[in-house]
């Protein structure tokens, strides 16, 4: 009967879980990418619900604040990067949710001035060639910016796919966790049985 009590509870909990997919999980996450000098992104909960009205604070690796604001109704935010450095984006709700995401310097166009202090984060990028000599056809700076924007746009769905893929592993983790608990219970039970057995 005890087993029945337990299985009723587990079935009920599982039914509730199934009923609320795809609102799967509860961790807040933030995702951002750079397109040109604009860094845009959004805060969301595992499972896809966007987090509206949460604080967004952006700092460089040294901790100097670069931008602060809140997300809109769709959980989105955007700001202009002025320096080519890592941007550490942290979002925090009033209820203790928090998440961070780093837009690396490599994602930003090379024409931005680099970080004076935290330049260690900069990749070994070639010095901006051709910024002085200007061929008639296309300004290399513009060309570079266009390429970077295009690549960023094409990579974005891929990155979103990776983020959503993480949520798919969820079910494996649920089953694994239940397995752990059952195993621990069995282990504890076995140990107590052995103890009483020795005492007897």
């Amino acid at each position: 009967m005890r087993r029945r009590f337990g299985s009723i509870l587990i079935l009920a909990a599982l039914a509730l879980t199934l009923g609320t997919v795809p609102a799967l999980a509860h961790k807040m996450k933030v995702f951002a990418t750079a397109e040109g000098t604009t860094i845009s992104g959004y805060a969301y909960f595992n499972g896809g619900n966007r987090a509206a009205g949460v604080r967004v604070a952006v700092a460089d690796p040294a901790g100097t604040p670069v931008f602060s604001g809140t997300t809109d109704e769709g959980g989105a935010f955007r700001f202009e990067a002025t320096r080519r450095t890592d941007h550490v984006i942290s979002v925090a709700g009033d209820d203790g949710h928090a998440a961070t995401f780093v837009v690396t310097a490599a994602e930003l166009p090379e024409r931005l001035p680099g970080a004076e202090a935290g330049s260690a984060a900069l990749p070994a990028s070639p010095p901006p060639v051709g910024s002085l000599s200007r061929p008639a056809a296309v300004d290399p700076d513009d060309l570079r910016a266009m390429i970077e924007q295009g690549v960023a746009r094409q990579i974005r769905p891929l990155r979103e796919q990776i983020e959503s893929y993480q949520d798919k592993i969820w079910w494996h983790d649920v089953l694994g966790g239940i397995g752990y608990i059952v195993g621990l219970g069995g282990l504890a039970y076995g140990l107590t049985q052995r103890r009483t057995g020795v005492a007897r």
């Binding site: 509870l9 909990a13 999980a25 509860h26 649920v174 239940i178 059952v182």
Partner: peptide, 14 residues
Amino acid sequence: SILSAVFFVASLVH
């Protein structure tokens, strides 16, 4: 351990 498992799963219900 059963209640622990229920508790574990319950937090995933959103």
